[in-house]
C-alpha cells in the first residue's frame, strides 16, 4: 500500500472548484434559501421584459388604486399602472447598477487595500488617513451632492456607488494582506527580488481573494439598500422607470388605504437583500473563512 494515498487529490479545474463551492453553499439550509432567492431575482431580471403582462408606463386614470384581482394580480397604483408589471421590472435597474457598482468597489478597494498592506510605512499611513476621512463623511450626503451636480444617469451612479462602498473594502483587504504579509513566502519572494506587482498578483491575491470576495458580496446588499434609498429620496433613477425605491416612495402616502401598491416592492427589495446576505454568508462558510465550520483535527 502506498503511504500517500490520502494525497491523491488532483489539481482541479476552475469550473470544478466553483461548482464544488456552490454545492457546499447549497448544502446548508440558509445557503440554499439565499441562493434560491438570489437566482430567482436574477432570472426574473432577465426575463421580466418578456413576461410583463402590461406596459409599465401605461397610465389609466379609470383604474386608479384598484385592489388585487385576477386581472391585476398586485392591484394598480395611483396612476392606474399595473403594480405586478412594475414590481417584476423594478429590480432590473437596481440589480444591474449595484452589481457593477460592487465590481468597481471590489476592484479599487481591494487593490488599494492590498497595496497599502504590502508597502506599509508612510504611504500606507497617508492613504489610510484619507480613507478614514472619507469614511467619516455620511455617504448619503456625499451621494446627494454628486448626484445633484452630475445628474442621475447610470454612468454617474455606478462609479459613485462603487467609490463610496469601496472604502470599507480597503480596510478589509488591508487587514487580510497584513495576515499574509508576515508569512515567510512573502519574505522569500521579496528576498528573491520580485517586483511589488508580481508579489501582489502571485503571492497575495490568491490568499486574500476569498476574504475580499465575501466582503464584496456583503457590500453588494448594502449598496442595494443604499441605491434604493437614493431612489426613495428621488435621486436614483427618474420616473417613469419602474424602481422599487421609487415605487415605495410614491405609494408611501397611500399605505393606509392601498397597501398593495407598497407591499409588493417592499417584499421585492427586502427579499433580494436577504437573499444576497444569506448567499454571502454561505459563501464565506463554504470557503472556510468562518472558523466554526472548519473540519476537525
Amino acid at each position: 500500500m502506498k503511504l500517500d494515498n490520502i494525497y491523491q487529490e488532483e489539481k482541479k479545474s476552475n469550473f470544478a472548484k466553483v461548482s464544488e463551492i456552490i454545492i457546499t453553499m447549497a448544502s446548508r439550509p440558509s445557503g440554499f434559501i439565499g441562493l434560491s432567492i438570489l437566482i430567482f431575482h436574477v432570472i426574473l431580471a432577465f426575463i421580466s421584459p418578456y413576461i410583463a403582462p402590461y406596459d409599465f408606463k401605461a397610465i389609466n386614470p379609470t383604474l386608479m388604486l384598484q385592489a388585487p384581482s385576477a386581472e391585476y394580480w398586485f392591484g394598480t397604483d395611483d396612476l392606474g399602472r399595473d403594480v405586478f408589471t412594475r414590481t417584476i421590472l423594478g429590480g432590473r435597474t437596481a440589480l444591474t447598477i449595484t452589481f457593477f457598482g460592487s465590481l468597481i468597489a471590489l476592484l479599487w478597494g481591494g487593490l488599494l487595500g492590498i497595496f497599502c498592506g504590502l508597502v506599509g510605512g508612510k504611504t500606507d499611513d497617508i492613504v489610510m488617513r484619507i480613507v478614514d476621512a472619507f469614511l467619516s463623511i455620511p455617504w448619503i450626503l456625499a451621494m446627494l451632492l454628486i448626484v445633484s451636480l452630475l445628474g442621475t444617469s447610470t454612468e454617474v451612479l455606478i462609479p459613485a456607488l462603487g467609490f463610496f462602498y469601496g472604502k470599507g473594502i480597503v480596510r478589509v483587504a488591508r487587514a487580510a494582506t497584513h495576515d499574509v504579509i508576515a508569512k515567510d513566502f512573502i519574505v522569500s519572494a521579496r528576498a528573491r527580488g520580485h517586483s511589488n506587482f508580481s508579489i501582489i498578483w502571485n503571492e497575495i491575491i490568491p490568499n486574500v481573494r476569498d476574504a475580499i470576495l465575501v466582503e464584496g458580496a456583503m457590500r453588494w446588499s448594502w449598496m442595494l439598500l443604499g441605491f434604493s434609498s437614493l431612489s426613495f429620496l428621488g435621486f436614483g433613477v427618474s420616473p417613469p422607470t419602474p424602481d422599487w425605491g421609487l415605487m415605495i416612495s410614491n405609494a408611501r402616502g397611500l399605505m393606509s388605504f392601498a397597501y398593495w401598491s407598497v407591499i409588493a416592492p417592499i417584499v421585492g427589495l427586502s427579499s433580494l437583500i436577504i437573499g444576497i446576505n444569506l448567499t454571502a454568508d454561505a459563501f464565506a462558510k463554504a470557503l472556510g473563512i468562518d472558523r466554526s465550520t472548519k473540519a476537525p483535527v
Binding site: V187, S188, N202, P206
Partner: peptide, 28 residues
C-alpha cells in the same frame, strides 16, 4: 534589497524554518 541587482539576489537564497509558512498555500 532595492540596491542589489538581480544577480546579487540570485546568489543568495533562503530556506525557512517552517515550510507551512514559506510555501504559498494557493500555489502548486
Amino acid at each position: 534589497l532595492k540596491e542589489r541587482d538581480p544577480n546579487d539576489l540570485r546568489i543568495i537564497q533562503l530556506i525557512f524554518q517552517n515550510p507551512d509558512e514559506s510555501l504559498n498555500p494557493n500555489h502548486t
